[in-house]
Computed example of a mutant assay.
Amino acid sequence: MRAVLRFVDYTVVQDPAGERTWKARCVSGEEKDCGAESTVYGSDHAPTRWMAEHCKETGHERFQRIYEDYALVRKPEE
């Protein structure tokens, strides 16, 4: 039996119909992360403001920024 293998270069693109979301989590702390999280927002501006406010209130300076979106995988046009 013989097999023919064909390699296809797929392209991954952002799904324009999918929602994009941003949030932030405080990871400041010596032995344990603070763990405070912003709510989920539809842009990166609000989590940035949340991080600044949390820093002002607590002195915490280290955050994890979390971005999520949806992707589509496309085969090249034949």
Rank of each mutant, 00 (worst) to 15 (best):
W50F: 10
E31C: 12
E30S: 13
R20I: 14
V8K: 05
E30R: 13
A17I: 08
E53M: 05
E61R: 11
P16T: 08
Y70P: 00
A46N: 01
C26Y: 00
T58W: 04
R62S: 10
R2H: 07
A24G: 04
E37C: 10
W50I: 09
P76F: 05
G29N: 09
G18E: 12
G59V: 12
R2F: 08
T11E: 15
V12P: 01
Y67P: 00
C55E: 06
R65C: 10
D33Y: 10
M51A: 06
T39Y: 03
E37Q: 11
R74M: 13
V40F: 05
R49V: 12
P47S: 02
G35I: 03
E37R: 11
W50Y: 03
P47W: 01
V27W: 05
A3S: 04
Y10P: 00
P76S: 12
A3T: 15
M51Q: 01
T11C: 14
G59I: 08
V73K: 08
C34K: 06
V13W: 00
F63Y: 12
E68M: 07
E77P: 07
V12K: 08
I66G: 09
E68A: 11
R62A: 07
K75D: 02
A36E: 02
S43C: 12
Y41K: 13
R62F: 05
K56M: 05
Q14P: 07
H45L: 10
R65L: 03
A71W: 03
Q64A: 13
